[in-house]
Simulated scan of single mutants.
Amino acid sequence: MVVSVMELEEGKTAKIIEIQGGHGMQNQLRSIGILEGKDIAVVTHHPFQGPIVVKVDRKMISLGRGLACRIMVEMTS
């Protein structure tokens, strides 16, 4: 099932299959290690429309909700 990172529950891991958006945004995410084929895990959803903290390659990354909605993943666990 394909969903956005926003829809993943805390503690769940998924494989990144697509980054939706323009080349600038895709390059920005790829430069911090978020790219197709990698596993991504949601660490926490901050309340009150705050950021989403994810883990990719043992790195913790804080993403705004707008960016998190554009990272499409396939659930693995």
Rank of each mutant, 00 (worst) to 15 (best):
M1K: 15
V2H: 13
V2Y: 12
V3T: 10
V3I: 14
S4N: 12
S4G: 12
V5C: 01
M6C: 12
M6L: 12
M6D: 03
M6R: 15
M6T: 15
E7K: 15
E7I: 10
E7D: 12
L8V: 09
L8R: 03
L8E: 02
E10W: 13
E10I: 11
G11I: 04
G11A: 05
G11L: 07
G11Q: 08
K12N: 13
K12W: 07
K12I: 13
K12R: 10
T13W: 10
T13A: 07
A14V: 01
K15Y: 09
K15A: 13
K15Q: 12
I16H: 04
I16P: 01
I16T: 06
E18L: 15
E18C: 14
E18I: 15
I19G: 09
I19W: 03
Q20N: 05
Q20K: 10
Q20P: 06
Q20I: 08
G21W: 03
G21K: 07
G21A: 09
G21S: 12
G22E: 06
G22W: 03
G24I: 08
Q26T: 11
Q26N: 12
Q26D: 13
N27I: 08
Q28F: 14
Q28L: 03
L29W: 00
L29Q: 01
L29M: 07
L29V: 03
R30G: 12
R30A: 08
S31G: 14
G33R: 04
G33S: 08
G33L: 09
G33C: 06
L35P: 03
E36P: 08
E36Y: 02
E36T: 06
G37Q: 04
K38A: 04
D39W: 06
D39G: 11
I40G: 01
I40T: 00
I40F: 03
I40C: 00
I40M: 00
V42Y: 01
V42L: 01
V42K: 01
V43D: 09
V43S: 07
V43I: 13
V43L: 08
T44I: 15
T44N: 10
T44K: 15
T44V: 14
H46L: 14
H46C: 04
H46A: 09
H46F: 15
P47W: 03
F48T: 06
F48I: 04
F48V: 04
F48G: 09
P51G: 08
P51D: 09
P51W: 06
I52L: 12
I52H: 05
V53G: 03
V54F: 04
V54C: 04
K55Q: 07
K55L: 09
V56E: 00
V56F: 04
D57T: 07
D57Q: 12
D57G: 07
D57P: 02
D57Y: 02
R58N: 10
K59S: 09
K59Q: 14
M60H: 11
M60W: 06
M60S: 06
I61N: 02
L63D: 03
L63P: 02
G64H: 14
R65V: 02
R65H: 05
R65I: 02
G66T: 13
L67F: 08
L67P: 04
A68S: 14
A68G: 11
A68Q: 01
C69F: 04
C69N: 10
R70E: 00
R70L: 05
M72P: 04
M72E: 02
M72L: 13
V73N: 00
V73C: 02
E74M: 05
E74A: 15
M75Y: 05
M75N: 13
M75H: 11
M75P: 10
M75W: 05
T76Y: 06
T76Q: 11
S77L: 05
S77K: 10
